[in-house]
């Protein structure tokens, strides 16, 4: 069966649509379709891909208007014609490749690592954490940083410096970790002018997350915590 791929291309100066027809078998993914085009029809088609098993987060693109991981999207589930575009809210470098530099900088900015006073590199000790404590944050560790959430966020669309759902989720993941002692430090970082208060709960991030992480939930949890801390500080 032939499927029509309409691809939004960009060569550094101008942006245009290009259409390819490719033969599709049951089980073929959009990423395999893109590779088919690159290998057989147009070698200059540019996209990112690596693991092809939905764990590395490279291949998030907009498919029929919705951001998805190309590698885990079955072509035939979408239909017999589809539109592939680069993610919104990111600067396009070439074809489907977008600039993730700022995205990773924002992730870095929330100090997404365990902060402990007794951190000892030479002589580490086993920390005790019950399955229940693990469960409290585990789902939020599954973020692959694919950028899907950021690309649909209306707050990120109009504020370049908004940290975005992924970075705030990373902060929440560590705040909720029973081994961590850096909650105060991280709260100060994510509750500033470009932080959680920019969120207006469109909740689209949770809708598109390919790992079903619920970033919107993490943002609200931090926001609530921050409100409580602020109120407390008034009476202190």
């Amino acid at each position: 069966m032939d499927v029509e791929f309409r691809i939004r291309r960009f060569d550094g100066e101008k942006s245009y649509w290009q259409t390819f027809n490719i033969p599709v078998k049951r089980g073929m993914t959009v990423l395999e379709g893109l590779y088919y085009i690159k290998e057989n029809l147009d070698g200059s088609l540019t996209f990112r891909a690596s693991c092809r098993m939905a764990i590395c987060g490279s291949c998030a693109v907009k498919i029929n208007g919705k951001p998805r991981l190309a590698c885990e999207t079955q072509i035939l589930e979408i239909g017999n014609s589809l539109e592939v575009e680069p993610l919104d809210n990111f600067k396009v470098i070439k074809d489907l490749v977008t600039d993730f530099e700022g995205f990773f900088k924002k992730h870095e900015a929330v100090k997404p690592y365990l902060i402990r006073k007794d951190d000892n590199y030479e002589e580490p000790v086993e920390l005790i954490q019950s399955p229940k404590e693990l469960h409290a944050y585990y789902d939020f560790t599954l973020c692959v940083k694919c950028g899907a959430c950021y690309s649909v966020c209306p707050a990120a669309a109009t504020r370049d410096d908004y940290l975005g759902p992924a970075a705030i989720t990373a902060a929440y993941r560590f705040n909720a970790d029973s081994r961590d002692e850096g909650e105060k430090i991280r709260l100060a970082l994510v509750c500033g002018d470009n932080g959680v208060w920019r969120c207006h709960f469109a909740a689209e991030c949770s809708e598109v997350c390919p790992k079903q992480i619920d970033p919107a939930k993490a943002v609200q949890k931090i926001r609530f915590k921050s409100a409580i801390e602020t109120i407390k500080s008034i009476f202190r």
Partner: peptide, 10 residues
């Protein structure tokens, strides 16, 4: 386009 009801609500 392509968004869920939540975005429309927004």
């Amino acid at each position: 386009k392509g968004k869920s009801l939540f975005s429309i609500a927004f």
